[in-house]
Amino acid sequence: ELELEEVDLYRMNSQDKLGLTVCYRTDDEDDIGIYISEIDPNSIAAKDGRIREGDRIIQINGIEVQNREEAVALLTSEENKNFSLLIARP
C-alpha cells in the first residue's frame, strides 16, 4: 500500500533549481516508475523538506509521468514557476 502525498514547490525565477535528480529503479524490470535519486541540499525541494530520496513521482502538474525524459522536461521547464508533484512512498 503506497502513501500518496502532493507537494507544491514554488520558485521565484526560472534560475532557481528544484534540485531533484530522477532515475529508474533498475532492479525490477516491471517497475517503470520514476524515482528521486538525489536532492540537492541547497535547493527548493531540500528547503521544503517533504520530498525524500526514494520517493516515486506519479504526476507533475497533473501530468502522469511515463518516463525519465518526460519528468526531466517537466521539472526543468522554464515556463513553470509552480510545481505540483504527486509522490508515492511505501
Rank of each mutant, 00 (worst) to 15 (best):
E1Y: 07
E1N: 15
E1D: 15
E1T: 02
L2K: 15
L2P: 10
L2H: 11
L2N: 04
L2Y: 04
L2A: 08
E3V: 07
E3P: 05
E3A: 12
E3H: 11
E3Y: 13
L4K: 10
E5M: 14
E5D: 11
E5A: 06
E5W: 04
E6P: 15
E6M: 05
E6N: 12
V7E: 00
V7Q: 00
V7C: 00
V7N: 00
V7L: 09
V7R: 01
V7Y: 08
D8W: 03
D8Y: 02
D8H: 15
D8L: 13
D8F: 03
L9A: 01
L9D: 01
L9Y: 03
L9P: 00
L9I: 08
Y10Q: 11
Y10F: 15
Y10W: 07
R11K: 04
R11G: 15
R11W: 02
R11Y: 15
M12K: 11
M12P: 10
N13T: 07
N13A: 15
N13C: 04
N13E: 13
N13Y: 07
N13Q: 12
N13P: 04
Q15S: 10
Q15C: 07
Q15R: 07
D16C: 14
D16E: 05
D16R: 06
D16A: 07
D16H: 07
K17D: 09
K17I: 10
L18P: 03
L18W: 15
L18Y: 03
L18A: 04
G19K: 01
G19P: 01
G19C: 00
G19Q: 00
G19T: 00
G19N: 01
G19E: 01
G19M: 01
L20F: 06
L20T: 02
L20P: 01
L20K: 00
L20M: 14
T21K: 06
V22R: 01
V22K: 01
V22A: 04
V22Q: 02
C23S: 10
C23Y: 08
C23V: 10
C23T: 09
C23P: 05
C23M: 12
Y24L: 12
Y24S: 12
Y24H: 13
R25I: 15
R25F: 04
R25L: 11
T26P: 12
T26D: 07
T26R: 12
T26I: 07
T26Q: 09
D27V: 10
D27R: 13
D27Y: 06
D27I: 12
D28E: 05
D28V: 11
D28T: 09
D28F: 10
D28N: 11
E29D: 09
E29I: 14
E29F: 07
E29W: 04
D30Y: 13
D30N: 09
D30M: 07
D31A: 15
D31N: 09
I32V: 15
I32P: 03
I32L: 13
I32A: 03
I32T: 05
G33V: 14
G33N: 15
G33L: 06
I34S: 07
Y35K: 12
Y35A: 07
I36A: 04
I36F: 03
I36Q: 00
I36V: 07
I36D: 00
S37E: 05
S37F: 05
S37W: 03
S37Q: 12
S37H: 08
S37I: 09
E38S: 08
I39Y: 01
I39H: 00
I39P: 04
I39Q: 01
I39N: 00
I39R: 02
I39K: 02
D40M: 14
D40G: 06
D40H: 13
P41G: 08
P41T: 13
P41R: 11
P41D: 12
N42F: 07
N42V: 09
S43M: 04
S43F: 04
S43H: 07
S43A: 09
A45D: 01
A45K: 00
A45E: 01
A45C: 06
A46D: 06
A46I: 03
A46V: 02
A46T: 07
A46R: 05
K47H: 09
K47Q: 11
K47N: 11
D48T: 06
G49N: 09
G49L: 04
G49V: 04
R50V: 02
R50S: 08
I51F: 12
I51S: 03
I51C: 14
I51K: 00
I51R: 00
I51Q: 00
I51Y: 00
R52A: 12
R52W: 08
R52N: 13
E53G: 07
E53D: 06
G54R: 06
G54F: 03
G54W: 05
G54A: 06
D55L: 02
R56H: 05
R56D: 02
I57R: 00
I57E: 00
I57W: 00
I58F: 05
I58G: 02
I58K: 15
I58W: 04
I58V: 13
Q59N: 14
Q59P: 00
Q59C: 10
Q59Y: 03
Q59M: 04
Q59H: 06
I60Y: 01
N61S: 03
N61C: 06
N61Y: 01
N61D: 14
N61W: 01
N61A: 02
N61T: 01
G62L: 02
G62R: 08
G62A: 07
I63P: 00
I63N: 08
I63Q: 11
I63H: 12
E64R: 04
E64N: 04
E64P: 05
E64G: 03
E64S: 04
V65R: 03
V65L: 11
Q66V: 15
Q66W: 10
N67F: 05
R68P: 06
R68S: 07
R68G: 08
E69R: 07
E69S: 10
E69Q: 11
E69M: 13
E70V: 11
E70G: 07
E70A: 08
E70L: 05
A71L: 04
A71S: 05
A71P: 03
V72M: 14
V72K: 09
V72G: 08
V72N: 13
V72H: 12
V72I: 08
V72L: 10
V72R: 09
A73K: 14
A73Y: 10
A73H: 06
L74R: 12
L74C: 04
L74D: 04
L74W: 09
L74N: 13
L74F: 10
T76Q: 06
T76F: 11
T76W: 07
T76A: 08
T76L: 08
T76G: 06
T76M: 14
S77E: 10
S77V: 11
S77N: 10
S77M: 08
E78D: 15
E78Q: 11
E79W: 06
E79D: 13
N80M: 14
N80I: 08
K81P: 09
K81R: 06
K81G: 15
K81Y: 04
K81L: 06
K81I: 13
K81D: 06
N82I: 10
N82K: 10
N82M: 04
F83C: 04
F83N: 03
F83Q: 03
F83H: 08
S84C: 05
S84F: 06
S84I: 09
S84P: 04
S84W: 04
L85S: 01
L85T: 02
L85M: 09
L85W: 00
L86P: 00
L86R: 12
L86S: 14
L86Q: 15
L86A: 11
L86N: 09
L86D: 05
L86G: 15
I87H: 01
I87A: 04
I87V: 08
I87W: 00
I87L: 12
I87S: 02
A88H: 08
A88I: 02
A88L: 04
A88N: 15
R89H: 14
R89L: 01
R89V: 01
R89P: 13
R89M: 01
P90T: 02
P90M: 14
P90D: 05
P90G: 09
